[in-house]
Amino acid sequence: MRYAMAVDTKKCVGCSDCVVACQTENNVPIGYCRDWVVEITHGTYPQLELEIRSERCNHCDNSPCVRCCPTGASHYSDGGIVLVTEDKCIGCGACISSCPYDARYPHPDGHVDKCTFCIHRVQKGQKPACVEVCPTKCMYFGDLDDPNSDVSKVLKKRKFKTLIPEAGTKPQLYFLI
């Protein structure tokens, strides 16, 4: 089993519904976010091109955060989801420094926090909150080992990219282009 997510940059309108859904579902403290929207404008006027991406932890196959964690708090869970065990985390910040996507932050309670792919929902057969609420249905989630999962099917059909593949992290958040 290998959970992954695909975000369609052609469909995303940058409404930030995913951000609010995540904050509500996961009780993210005010002022923080586990997922966020990035808008990138390429070119010069009038030849402009806009790409909008809903970003979060890439749940990498080769996670630098898991490697550098001195206590084992950062670990791989079911289907490769990268999680932080709160009462093992000492809040040293090594994982925050190690993430090329800056997907982690220090929670006000002290431990480090990040996207969990809503594992508590996924284990019940539900989709992550961000995927569930997206009004343009631009996000796909599922098991890459299952050829019939939403994410497998869309990655078979569409061209995609990952972020900073040169960092060698083998990210599992795909962007349809």
């Binding site: 930030s16 951000v19 002022g31 923080y32 976010c33 966020w36 929207v37 990035v38 808008e39 990138i40 404008t41 970003e55 910040g93 925050i96 800056d102 982690r104 932050y105 220090p106």
Partner: peptide, 9 residues
């Protein structure tokens, strides 16, 4: 333009 503004990050 990023919508993220996490403390210390």
């Amino acid at each position: 333009i990023s919508g993220r503004m996490n403390y210390k990050v």
